[in-house]
């Protein structure tokens, strides 16, 4: 009985500790400025289809300081891979080494998939996301809504919680979202360091969000 009590208590303390660590990690985000060291390594969650086009437009605007760039795509998505390669080739200088990689992980959710099986495949995606993010240790994760964002951001948060590396979470809600956040957006809103929305109606509903007008 005592052993059980002790065990329960230690589990509760661990959870409490992790929650406090999560709070501190998220709260101190804006103070963290990886750019002052010269370059910012970026994990770009490309997802699929329209999400990829949007995020590449954002990447196009970022300077060479955002190097290296690691793109994560769903393993069923050939079109995104081609778009990324075309984009990266277009900005590569003639003599330099390519400054990007493409990593594939299983899709969290296909468009027609039900919620319950979405949960299972998200857990499955986490198995791939954790080793990937722990290996790359990016300064920031840039994402804009595909389901794949969630396990990757969770892995980034975990690095912060464990005190290994502060990974900034930069979330840009898709321009598709005019009145309501995406499910991914709702999940990541409380833990993002910079959360951008592109329509004023969303800014009014989510006060922590950043509204700069349409940015893609």
């Amino acid at each position: 009985m005592e052993v059980l009590c002790g065990l329960t208590l230690s589990v509760l303390f661990t959870i409490l500790f992790l929650i406090i660590r999560l709070y501190i990690t998220v709260k101190n985000g804006p103070k963290h400025q990886p750019g002052t060291t010269g370059s910012v390594s970026v994990l770009v969650v490309a997802g699929s289809g329209g999400h990829t086009s949007e995020i590449l437009r954002l990447m196009e605007s970022l300077s060479a300081a955002y190097t290296p760039r690691h793109y994560v795509i769903a393993d069923t998505d050939r079109m995104s891979e081609e778009k990324i390669c075309t984009f990266e080739r277009s900005r590569q200088h003639s003599n330099s080494e390519p400054q990007f990689t493409i990593c594939q992980i299983p899709r969290s959710r296909e468009v027609h998939q039900s919620w319950s099986s979405s949960v299972i495949s998200t857990v499955n995606a986490l198995r791939y996301s954790l080793p990937l993010v722990f290996r790359l240790r990016p300064d920031m994760v840039l994402c804009n809504g595909p389901g794949t964002c969630v396990p990757l951001c969770a892995a980034g948060l975990l690095l912060g919680i464990l005190g290994m590396k502060k990974v900034l979470i930069v979330y840009v809600e898709s321009i598709c979202r005019v009145q309501t956040l995406s499910l991914t957006g709702k999940i990541l809103y409380p833990v993002s360091d910079y959360f951008f929305v592109q329509w004023s109606s969303l800014r009014d509903k989510y006060p922590k969000s950043i509204f700069l007008g349409r940015i893609v």
Binding site: P30, Q33, P34, G35, T36, V40, R57, L58, E60, S61, L62, S63, A65, Y66, D139, M140, L168, V170, V172, I175, Y194, F196, Q198, I210, L212, G213, R214, I215, V216
Partner: peptide, 19 residues
């Protein structure tokens, strides 16, 4: 009129301390 990605980039540069 397309969205202004440059505004996003400037914001991020400032926030992250990119020179």
């Amino acid at each position: 009129q397309p969205g202004q990605t440059k505004i996003f980039a400037n914001f991020l540069d400032k926030a992250l301390g990119v020179q």
